[in-house]
């Protein structure tokens, strides 16, 4: 059955000879609240932190850029130093998986993977991580030739799978629900916030928004959507075994949101 036949059959059920084209006359503006409250950074962060921590995430407001960098290294180093506690309270199985058959670009040293993003670069993490015995891998940009994408993609996947932690920026952070919005793009791998047992997200103050509805509005105003836009609210969870909450099922079991200074 062709698409046209398929759609025509639908149209006929509604008494139309052929599928509608043009406009269906829909006022979508009414799907969003008309105004958004104007909260300052303190109120926004206070609510964001409260909501995220309710879900088992950690919110940290850095006093300075150096403080933010130290916090990130501290989280990552804690993981490296205590391999029995990888942050995923699902417990200890990750290292084995991550190590299995994965190429080790930086040798056998534990690795932290990060977006190629100015907000990460500004923290100058590489030296501090190295001092703590950790390699920093920056998510790359693939070769533009289509045929070449599969191989670097595979390596990137293996890299993210064996990383102890993934460091990303965000597009927006929502106070109402403690939600982070992350778009994909060159240097902004979607697996960075997904495969490692720990996700550390860096937030600039102007990225804080009061409500999810406002975030949806901003995303719409930004024009073309990215190939992947994910709204992350707390660590990965499930209650599928006897309604018992477990954290870190497939995604990160540990989520740290760090607010950078203005």
């Amino acid at each position: 059955m062709t698409e046209q036949e398929f759609l025509t059959a639908l149209a006929r059920r509604k008494g139309r000879d052929r599928p509608m084209t043009g406009r269906a006359g829909w006022a979508s503006a009414r799907s969003l609240p008309p105004v958004c409250p104007d909260w300052g950074v303190d109120a926004l962060w206070e609510r964001f932190a409260r909501e995220l921590e309710k879900l088992g995430g950690t919110a940290y407001r850095a006093g300075s850029r150096a403080d933010a960098g130290e916090y990130v290294v501290r989280v990552a180093a804690t993981l490296a130093g205590l391999p029995e506690d990888r942050g995923a309270r699902g417990g200890g199985a990750e290292a084995e998986v991550a190590g299995a058959g994965a190429p080790a670009p930086g040798g056998d040293r534990p690795v932290v993977v990060a977006w190629d993003d100015p907000v990460v670069a500004a923290l100058g993490l590489r030296d501090a991580l190295e001092a703590a015995g950790l390699d920093l891998a920056i998510w790359g940009h693939s070769a533009p030739e289509a045929g070449q994408q599969a191989t670097p993609g595979w390596n990137a996947k293996q890299l993210a799978a064996r990383a102890l932690a993934g460091i990303t920026g965000v597009n927006w952070a929502v106070a109402e629900t403690g939600t982070l919005l992350l778009s994909s793009g060159p240097g902004r791998g979607r697996l960075v916030s997904l495969l490692p047992p720990v996700h550390i997200a860096l937030i600039r103050p102007e990225q804080l928004l009061p409500s999810l509805a406002e975030a949806v509005r901003r995303v719409g105003e930004a024009g073309e959507l990215p190939s992947s836009l994910v709204l992350i609210t707390g660590p990965s969870r499930s209650a599928d075994i006897e309604n018992d909450l477990s954290i870190g099922v497939h995604g990160p079991g540990s989520l740290h949101a760090v607010l950078l200074p203005e």
Binding site: W139, S142, P152, P226, S227, L229, V230
Partner: peptide, 16 residues
């Protein structure tokens, strides 16, 4: 926890 919006396949410059 996750609300994922997927708009088309991987684009040029993306590794995953």
């Amino acid at each position: 926890t996750y609300t994922h919006l997927i708009t088309g396949p991987r684009r040029p410059g993306e590794l995953d």
